[in-house]
Design a protein around this nucleic acid. Structure first.
Ligand SMILES: [Mn+2]
Ligand SMILES: [Mn+2]
Ligand SMILES: [Zn+2]
Ligand SMILES: [Zn+2]
Lengths: 129, 129
DNA sequence: TAATAAATAGGAATCATTCCTGTTTATAAA
DNA sequence: TTTATAAACAGGAATGATTCCTATTTATTA
């Protein structure tokens, strides 16, 4: 990968966002610094960054979300409000040991929990009263 | 849900397929029995079946795949050949206990392993010689 | 300074999925 | 059995996230 101002700015944007932005959200964010950035460039660079393991992709719903945190961690998605939280359930050691139990060569371990987040659950309970 | 010949046939098709068909593959399969079935009907019915927990959805790549096996199990996806295998890593008891450790209300536990399957790995090693 | 290939902007194309509309059908009440 | 009603349907149009294309710009190296 050659040095590129656009790609650097895109990477910074993903890392700066607290929670898992979409390509379009990165595009909007980067536009503030590079007004004529192309959406195609954002997709291309995000793809390259993901291919090189510099960022991660998260698939849930109909849009891909990106994660600047490449430490091993998991995610919880609330079906009610669409929030996507980090979860620390399995650490690197656990995942490493798990890989040895499988005949295939594992590169990624992606766990997605779904359900109702604590906030939405409380709101729901209130409405039932 | 009202009784429906189309939906029954769609469910049978998903259950009959050994491995995780896409909506279009279900469509093609069901067309043999109901030649004028609509693709929109397949999508609608698959959605209803999934909403009611009768089948599961698996997201990997740019197409949704469906799973007639609703027992708790996990999946491995080969990046080389696109195969999607079942994996039995965590059983119902494990998942149940895990749910109690999380503040949110968990409905689904979806684990997707990715990498290179044993067959592709062997082929790759051969080529290197 | 020149050559070269990677990277880019902008827009078109793709394609899985959803939406829409007029028609058919399952179900239950009259 | 007939009728009323809403669910389900077929067929086709629309949507929208993502990818592809092409002429131009730019980073890198010799
Ligand atoms: Mn994360
Ligand atoms: Mn399965
Ligand atoms: Zn929520
Ligand atoms: Zn393979």
């Amino acid at each position: 990968m050659r040095h590129s101002h656009q790609r650097n700015t895109i990477l910074e944007a993903v890392r700066a966002k607290p929670v898992h932005p979409t390509a379009y959200q990165v595009f909007e964010s980067v536009k503030e610094q590079i007004p004529n950035i192309s959406l195609a460039t954002v997709y291309r660079d995000l793809g390259q960054l993901a291919d090189n393991g510099i960022i991660n992709t998260i698939k849930k719903g109909n849009v891909v979300r990106y994660d600047g945190n490449t430490m091993i961690h998991q995610h919880f998605y609330c079906e009610e409000c669409g929030s996507l939280f980090d979860q620390e359930l399995f650490d690197e050691k656990f995942v490493f040991q798990l890989k040895t139990k499988i005949v295939h060569e594992i590169e990624n371990f992606d766990l997605m929990l779904t359900g109702t987040c604590i906030k939405c659950k409380n709101n729901g309970d209130k409405l039932k009263c």
